[in-house]
Write a protein that binds this DNA or RNA. Structure first.
Lengths: 248, 248
DNA sequence: GCGACTTTGTTCCTACGTTCACATGCGGCT
DNA sequence: AGCCGCATGTGAACGTAGGAACAAAGTCGC
């Protein structure tokens, strides 16, 4: 049972994982709902209530919570404060995770100023950009450093999470600098697939992809409305559509 | 009573869920890789090449592409330009989708200025905020309107996608205003679960959740490092958590 | 104190998504 | 022109996620 090659088998399959990724994502949602409820003075919740507030099935919720080591009381429900503690422990939120932001453009700027991160145990402790005009200025009370100093600064400030907000072309090199600085968790906003060592975890947030998924749903809905055949429908002249893809 | 009808009732010839959501997300990634390749002059690609660049299995890629109506040539591969057209058609990108941004804070500001959206067929045509100091000013060449005018403006400018960047407490009402304006696709950056009618599609992008997932992986990795057995380890001491005095 | 009710934690099962493997079909080569 | 090789597209198997039903367990009412 040892010697699992971790989750880096060529091809990217993720074997033997105690808690599924989807469950982790939901747990984070439960956590938010719970903290919100606690602020309103709620001390106990049933799985039905919590599931309703989180928008999931109650059985799914209970199964998710079973991963954290159950702490519910049968016939009553869950103690909100206790549940929060348990989820935080599982998610590793009992320690703070220093965050570094690379690329102080529109999005990077917003993230650096965003107050929600430190509130949740993710203090932003380093900012980087390649632009000499940006290096040295202060954003959200933190000075911008040059990307060349990423490895040294990340080690020094014990950065555990790197956020990449650079243009696409710079993302891979930014990623490599972060990895060189010991960062093994990366949140990538650049629309590229990063190549990383097996022991580095990358999550990608692609705004254009999200919009395209919504676009698909809109298109499907329209086609269902107008014709009962949802497959293979040409809606508009395709001539100019090949021209729009010139982004960046 | 097995009343789980909804989709796919026997006899229902309408494959409303012909294309899985995950496949749609991947198609959007393929699209980006393809456009990037086309810029470099690549006119043909095999499924292996494209799958490698997109970071997925080649069989998965071929199955995804089968949903768009096959356009590959056996023994050769895919014509990149043709494939782009087909994917764009399936995703509904043959028409432009007007985007409205609600909440011109840090993130909303960044999105309004972000050039990547219009380049990909998603022009931002409306901005809204509740703050009187913001209403009327121009962000990215577009005037900010008051949230009260959301329904009217959305109808007038034919907004199909609404982006919610408001604080949590305002998200639900912003959502309802968008729905009142005929918007049926919503991208929600606020960390709340929106309540919407069945015919409205909501996608949530929660930055804190992303960080928490990364935090979980970091925590799991640490425990694997220290204990050598990574499967099914729950930190048992449920007693009291005086030890984890997490600051908040 | 005891019974009945409520809710958890779990087990089973279904269904979906992904991967493997092979037949099909097309281009190139002789 | 015919054969060979190669890559697509699809059918089957595998694994995992999600949902329904159930037994254990603990509380509230009497």
């Amino acid at each position: 049972m040892h010697e699992h090659g971790r989750y880096g088998t060529p091809g990217g399959a993720l074997p033997s994982r105690a808690v599924p990724d989807a469950a982790v994502a939901r747990l984070a949602v439960y956590l938010r709902v719970l903290t919100s409820m606690i602020e309103q003075g709620v001390t106990k919740m049933s799985s039905e209530e919590l599931a309703g507030a989180a928008g999931v099935n109650s059985a799914t919720l209970r199964k998710d919570l079973s991963h954290v080591g159950s702490s519910g009381t049968r016939g009553v429900g869950y103690d909100t404060a206790q549940l929060v503690e348990h989820i935080e422990r599982l998610l590793g939120l009992t320690r703070h995770h220093s965050v570094a932001v690379v690329g102080i453009g529109n999005l990077g700027h917003a993230l650096a100023n965003y107050g929600g991160f430190p509130d949740r145990g993710f203090p932003v402790t380093a900012l980087f950009d390649v632009d000499e005009d940006l290096v040295g200025i202060s954003v959200g009370g933190l000075a911008v450093d040059h990307v060349d100093s990423i490895p040294a600064v990340c080690v020094e400030r014990e950065v555990t999470i790197g956020v990449i907000c650079t243009p696409s072309v710079a993302a891979q090199s930014a990623c490599e600098l972060l990895v060189a600085g010991g960062v093994r968790c990366i949140l990538n906003f650049a629309p590229v697939v990063l190549q990383v060592p097996d022991d580095v975890e990358v999550r990608r947030v692609d705004l254009a992809v999200e919009l395209q998924i919504l676009s698909f749903h809109e298109a499907r809905r329209s086609s269902v409305d107008s014709s009962a055949d949802g497959a293979l429908r040409v809606v508009a002249p395709v001539s100019d559509s090949a021209e729009i893809a010139v982004g960046r």
